[in-house]
Design a protein around this nucleic acid. Structure first.
Length: 120
DNA sequence: CCCAGCAATCGTCACAAGCC
DNA sequence: GGCTTGTGACGATTGCTGGG
């Protein structure tokens, strides 16, 4: 298996584009980076017009496939990184809301105590 | 020490959606 | 319409852990 160990973190409020359809309340987390730079080792092919024999066509097909696999590999990594970030955001939001909820419940109990008629 | 079970991570494929 | 990109699904791999 190929070994890659480069994971980086960022702090952004993110929501998946089509996952959000389920809840409908989160902003999209799609932040498309401009894809101008090719990964290292990627060599641009000759223009299609310059391909003659089947050998060249096969090589071109292979090169295209490898390029696609490499891009998809990177896209998958990025996708997972964003999803992880999104889940982190949701979890911290849950934590905040739980604290908030607890405080409101306590406040409600206090108010109930104040407002309830004395029975003795 | 070995092994099974588990979670995390990865690469790939298939497909939908958007762009030109 | 073909191409590109994002992402869910799937299988493979790896590292960890508890039990025998």
């Amino acid at each position: 298996m190929a070994v890659t160990g480069d994971e980086t973190d960022e702090e952004t409020e993110l929501a998946p584009s089509h996952m959000a359809a389920a809840t409908g309340d989160m902003p999209t987390y799609q932040i498309r980076a401009p894809t101008t730079a090719l990964p290292q080792g990627v060599v641009m092919a000759a223009s299609p017009g310059s391909l003659h024999n089947p050998q060249q066509l096969a090589e071109e097909a292979t090169r295209k496939r490898e390029l696609r696999l490499m891009k998809n590999r990177e896209a998958a990594k990025e996708c997972r990184r964003r999803k992880k970030e999104y889940v982190k955001c949701l979890e911290s939001r849950v934590a905040v809301l739980e604290v908030q909820n607890k405080k409101l419940i306590e406040e409600l109990e206090t108010l109930k105590d104040i407002c309830s008629p004395k029975t003795d």
